[in-house]
Amino acid sequence: MSFRSELTKGLVRENPTFRILLGMCPTMATSLAISNGIGMGIAATFVLVGSNVIVSMLRNVIPSRIRIPCYIVVIASFVTMVDLIMAAFVPKLHEVLGIFIPLIVVNCIILARAEAFASKNGVLYSLADGIGMGLGFTLALTGLSAIRELLGTGTLLAVPDFGFPGFRIFDRSLAAVMVILPPGGFITLGLLIGLLNSLTRRKKKAAQT
């Protein structure tokens, strides 16, 4: 176990969204545009890093029978911080993400890392694990939202908070609005995971022969 391997495992090998299939609700609900995806990813990463470090520090103090409520209080404190910070500095993004910011509390990724990793490992490793898993989540969200933003609106990188309309790749009349509606979230994510599965299988087959 090294700092570096803990940091990089979340990106691809144990990617929380595509490999472990955690935290699906915010993934589908907020991946409408790249700016939303990155915003949600950074918010979740902040909470994940904070809660991992604190839980790791307190791992010998918290009695094991009431550990889950203790983790939830730690996580909820960081979520409240993120909520207030975002409301102050990026109000439009805060409005778009809306209910999904307080809902970071029940994002399974964060509780899962606290329980499975931070409660058993040192502060430094937990920090690396939090950053890695957070970036993996951000990466997955950004990829999914790039596909949905492009197919659904025909633009890329629109950032309403800075008044930037985004780069228009093709005309709005060609865009498939269904992709940014709820069904598009389910189907795009399903196909993307299917594609990654098929790539992994092909790689394995190639390695065997």
């Binding site: 269904m178 995971i193 299917g194």
Partner: peptide, 20 residues
């Protein structure tokens, strides 16, 4: 169902169709 879509991906796609 195609091997790669079995399980979770197919469940998501089905949910998408229900959502439509």
């Amino acid at each position: 169902i195609p091997e790669s879509l079995k399980g979770f991906p197919m469940a998501l796609i089905t949910a998408g169709l229900m959502s439509i």
